[in-house]
C-alpha cells in the first residue's frame, strides 16, 4: 500500500499539477505566497546588504507583479486557481502600488 496516490504522469505535466491541487487545495495559495516572499525578501534583503537601505514598497510591487503574472498563467487552465484567489492577488498588487506611490520621496515624483 502506497503512502499517497501518485498523480497520473501519462497525460501531461499540467494534469499532474491539477491532480496535486485537487488533492491539496491549499497548494496554489501557498505557492503564490512562497513566490511573493522569495522576491520580496530576497530583493529587499540583498538591496539592504549592498546599499544599507532597502526600498520595501518597490520590492512589494515587483513581488506582487510576479505572482500576478503567475496567477494569470494559472488562470488559463481549469482546476489550478480559483476566481477569489485571482481577485485577492489583483487586490494585493493594487495595494502594493498604493503603498509604492505614497511612499516616494519628494525627489522621486
Amino acid at each position: 500500500m502506497s503512502l499517497y496516490e501518485l498523480p497520473n504522469a501519462t497525460s501531461s505535466l499540467d494534469n499532474m499539477l491539477v491532480q496535486a491541487i485537487a488533492a491539496s487545495p491549499s497548494f496554489t495559495p501557498l505557492l503564490l505566497v512562497f513566490a511573493f516572499f522569495v522576491v520580496f525578501l530576497g530583493g529587499s534583503g540583498r538591496q539592504l546588504a549592498r546599499n544599507g537601505t532597502a526600498d520595501y514598497s518597490m520590492w512589494s510591487v515587483i513581488a506582487s507583479l510576479s505572482i500576478f503574472m503567475i496567477s494569470l498563467i494559472m488562470s488559463t487552465i481549469t482546476g489550478i486557481i480559483r476566481l477569489d484567489w485571482l481577485v485577492i492577488v489583483v487586490v494585493v498588487t493594487i495595494f502594493s502600488g498604493v503603498w509604492f506611490f505614497l511612499d516616494r520621496k519628494p525627489s522621486e515624483i
Binding site: S75, T76, I81, L83, L86, V87, V90
Partner: peptide, 8 residues
Amino acid sequence: SVIDISDD
C-alpha cells in the same frame, strides 16, 4: 482563460 477576472 477559464478563470476570468471580469467574472467578478
